[in-house]
């Protein structure tokens, strides 16, 4: 889900950068000192989870799990994702420095969006809990892919076919992320339900 360096145009890079800075600032402001460690360790856990390759038909895909990040961390998912993406750029060369802002928006905006859309559904025990989790996982990848496609087409309209191809190629990943998010939430609901009620960010 990363865009590499050297692909996007200046307006897109600048727009992504500014949006990412604002989002990260909001997220940071809402994490109080008692929750820095929780955010950091959950951020490392998601970094590790994103390295897992899950078999899918003849090949395998790696997880993104930004829907789950959004559900657990809310607004705090923006700085958490920003941190993880910066580390990935540095350690693995995924993404990069000038596209960091755009990549943060692509991954974190859907996380925050699904936390607002499906957060209350996932937090309430019952039948709708698992449906909410599935929709959050699927919806986050769908939104991320749309944002990615938008960034590509906004740069150059000849990317239209590439963007459409990406959208189709991500369909299996969307279903997979929905399922995995569902299973993670069902596990957490059974084993440690208070993790789903985590309030890292103050509501101020």
């Amino acid at each position: 889900m990363h865009i590499s360096e050297g692909i996007l145009s200046l307006p897109i890079l600048a727009g992504g950068g500014v949006t990412a800075v604002i989002g990260t600032a909001i997220g940071l402001k809402r994490i109080d000192n008692d929750h820095i460690m929780e955010t950091a360790l959950l951020s490392s856990a998601f970094f590790v989870a994103s390295l897992i390759h899950i078999p899918l038909g003849p090949g395998s895909v790696h997880l993104v799990l930004n829907g789950l990040v959004g559900i657990l961390l809310g607004w705090a998912s923006v700085p958490a994702i920003a941190t993880a993406l910066f580390l990935q750029a540095l350690l693995f060369g995924f993404g990069g420095l000038t596209v960091l802002g755009v990549n943060i928006v692509i991954m974190a905006a859907p996380a925050v969006a699904v936390s607002f859309l499906f957060g209350s559904m996932v937090r309430k025990p019952g039948k709708s809990q698992l449906l909410g989790a599935f929709l959050a996982g699927l919806g986050a990848i769908l939104l991320s892919t749309l944002l990615l496609a938008l960034a590509l087409v906004g740069t150059d309209s000849s990317f239209l076919t590439t963007a459409k191809l990406l959208l189709v190629a991500q369909l299996p990943l969307m279903l997979l992320e929905g399922l995995i998010t569902l299973f993670v939430v069902s596990f957490l609901a059974k084993v440690q339900p208070d993790l789903l009620q985590l309030t890292i960010t103050s509501k101020s």
Binding site: E38, L42, I54, L188, L195, L198
Partner: peptide, 29 residues
């Protein structure tokens, strides 16, 4: 493998990793 059982297992492994990370973060804090 590509099966619901495998996906459930992965989901539980990730869930357990999250729980342990959270517990560790409380201790670190």
């Amino acid at each position: 493998s590509t099966s619901l059982h495998a996906y459930r297992t992965y989901g539980y492994l990730i869930g357990m990793t999250l729980i342990r990370s959270y517990a560790r973060s409380r201790r670190v804090h």
